[in-house]
Design a protein around this nucleic acid. Sequence first.
DNA 1: GAGCACTGC
Length: 952
Amino acid sequence: MAKQFRKKELSREDDEDETAQNRKEKERGVKRQPTSPHEANDDDDGSESEQERLRDQREREQLDRNIRERDAAATRKLSEQKQAFTTRGSNIVGDVETLRKVSRQEYLKKREANKLKELGESIEDGEYLYKGVKLTEVEYNRLSYEKKIYELATKHEAATHHDHDHDQYYRIPEPYDDHEGGVNQEKRFSVALQRCWDDDLNGRDNKSNQFAEQKAWEDQQIGKATLKFGSKNKRRKCDEEYDFVFEDQIEFVKKSVLLEGDQMIANGNVDVGKVQPSHQLDKLREERKTLPIYTFRERLLQDVEKNQVLIIVGETGSGKTTQIPQYLHEAGYTKGGKKIGCTQPRRIAAMSVAARVSQEMGVKLGHAVGYSIRFEDCTSEKTVLKYMTDGMLLREFLVEPDLASYSVVMVDEAHERTLSTDVLLGLLKDIARYRPDLKLIISSATLDAEKFSDFFDSAKILRIPGRRYPVDIHYMEAPQADYLDAAIVAALQVHVTQPPGDILFFLTGQEEIETAEEIFKHRTRGLGTKISELIICPIYANLPTELQAKIFEPTPEGARKVVLATNIAETSLTIDGIKYVIDPGFSKMKSYNPRSGMESLQVTPISKASSMQRAGRAGRTGHGKCFRLYTSYNYDSDLDDTTVPEVQRTNLANVVLTLKSLGIHDLVNFEFMDPPPCEALLKALELLFALGALNKVGELTKVGRRMAEFPVDPMLSKMIVASDKYKCSDEVISIAAMLSTGSSIFYRPKDKQVHADTARLRFHSGNVGDHIALLKVYNAWKEANYSTQWCYENYIQVRSMKRARDIRDQLERLLERVEIKLSSSNDLEAIKKAVTSGFFPHCVRLQKNGSYRTIKHPHTAHIHPSSGIMALEHHLLPRCVLYHELVLTTKEYMRQVTEIKPEWLVEIAPHYYQLNGVVEEDYSNSKKMPRGKGRTSTSKQIPNLVDYSICV
DNA sequence: GAGCACTGC
């Protein structure tokens, strides 16, 4: 049965490909024999609508070709640029820089033009003189184009009937952690549950809401029918509404409709919205039966029973995450005290899903159903369904290497391929061999299913349809050089021509978002209240929480919200009411160069998988549209299918330490789904050896075992372990916590930069270095009784501080476990020495030109301007400093820098540094030396650490 | 004298 199902799925996909190909060949005049009955039918179908469809198709393809030829040059140029992006190499930086510079210049040029515009309020018709200032033609055109927007908008507004259900889409989450007293548990899950409740229960009482949903649902069904029978009329009408008025307008071509699995809903006897039981729990139970996955229950259980590993392809809204563990529980997989574990990549997901499931089962959260995330274990001995983050399960491996207490492990959202997921998959595959009774369920997206199946020795794939609305995808007709500008024009186009519904706009980072915000404000200013209001909402992770809440505020009637978001909106947070998505096709991605040990954030083109994800954001509450700011040709030929998994572009020191402490010595043969570069593994091993976590043959040492206990980077954990010796563990864990918050501690608003800087420099008094400054910040905050007000006064991010406190508390608890006494010391030198014990590989020496050079490998770096050391006079720059991290932005910058004495290096890491290498006086004269000679002297300083062939 | 995609333990 199940086999047939899979076959059917495959053949359906094949058919689609076949027909597309068939059509193309037909056009070239090639006759083809039909290969399947379905296809033959397709060919014989001579109905009028079918012919019309084919004609349309042909016309469109002809148009495509024309466009392609016309813009061949431009396309080639862009694809060359993109090629350079995708090539993993050194030229990547230069290209990104050039592109951004061009984009910036364009923007500045346009801002200049806008300034002229600001000289007056009104737009005079047909005059090149504007408030007495002579305008150039471009300026004049710009003005008249603003006027066109204005006119169109007025017309459009008059014609548009306001959608009164509009603000039903929005729900304001209530803060739960802003109380000084702690967390309000009641409110805590309210946001997460709200959507479920609103959609599932309360929604029924709320007629208009149900109406909206019902209507959208019907629209989808109609849309499907339209698509199926080839009639284009309805869609045509839709396209005709496009009335391009922009001088630099962007033309889009509608290419495809994202419609996944919903045909199967219609066949699957799923009846939505007819259940009206009286009791709430019954209601929930009935609700469960309406989920698409319900019809697959028996099949799923059979498959799980027969196979050890099962790959589930469940689209969004299929209910897999909440239902599968329940089905397994009902089928008796939790007998004998065994647990079912389900991992999620994000904390919030683990929490909210567990809360939902506990309600469906009518049990209290933390009893039979629980969740386990960092800083919070909400489980008990009775827990049988355990939701957790993937990193948490990884930690559990350390305690229970065979996961003996689990009967089933479900890895949800595996296609996201986070670092933890990848490691987890390797480990699970490993233990599955020794535990035939352990069942594995891997949930993935469509694109990767085969790959997961291959990885788990051709595991069976079960496909479950989702419940999602169609999304029309529009591509640009011709590539644009300045994507930011193009994106803004596109957003304005949507604003003036499309029916109500909010716009989600994907940008790469904070800077770009701020620029875009500025441009938006400029462009809409002159139009005042005449076009319907455009509310700009920036959202990125570093934005203070209270400003983030703005995106959830209801949109006033008649206005439209534009959410300018980073990747955060791709997976991590969901904004209801989004109908339009604008996707420029770029994002920032972390990449790691194992040779220099440098991590950097680069603007790179996104993958097809993530562009699908972005498009899907428009189809959550109804039929949506996605505008891609690249051509369909770019999409097909330039974008990778999937994003490079994190394991291949990150520092692996922590992963290697974890694996080693799990007793996995043979790292090269450890089964990663996508093995990381060998160099990265070697680099990690080298570092761990230098830190003393591994011995010469690559085995974990006692120090290494203690280090593995701490959930922080190996260098930080080494620093903590070393603090025992210097009797300053209290201070060092504070520093470690502050360094591992991830986000910046200091807040620097644009309008108060001077104040923020002076506030920051207060913590640097006495030129103590950034590490000690962080300690001072933490201690001062502690003395201020962890006050939020104190943070505002000192321009410090409250969120980062709270996180640092959580991490610190956890580290403090762990100290006991590795038998380190909590001891406090006022001796700054001792603290710095402890820091040096962890970070000695990150030491640099001053060169004559004011930059720094790494001692071990020749590499130039600069102190980041945010460092306290930069406040010093140039001639006072310390000779030798240690840094926490190296980041590549415009230059190679060292962040969090502290002065150290070169002698410490020899004292602390004699195996790493030799005396002559560190205290050498003519260190900055390397330029005068012949290159070969210089190299010899460098290589002399590197002792032959270890024969890696043994340990890998 | 410049910048911080996003998670997670």
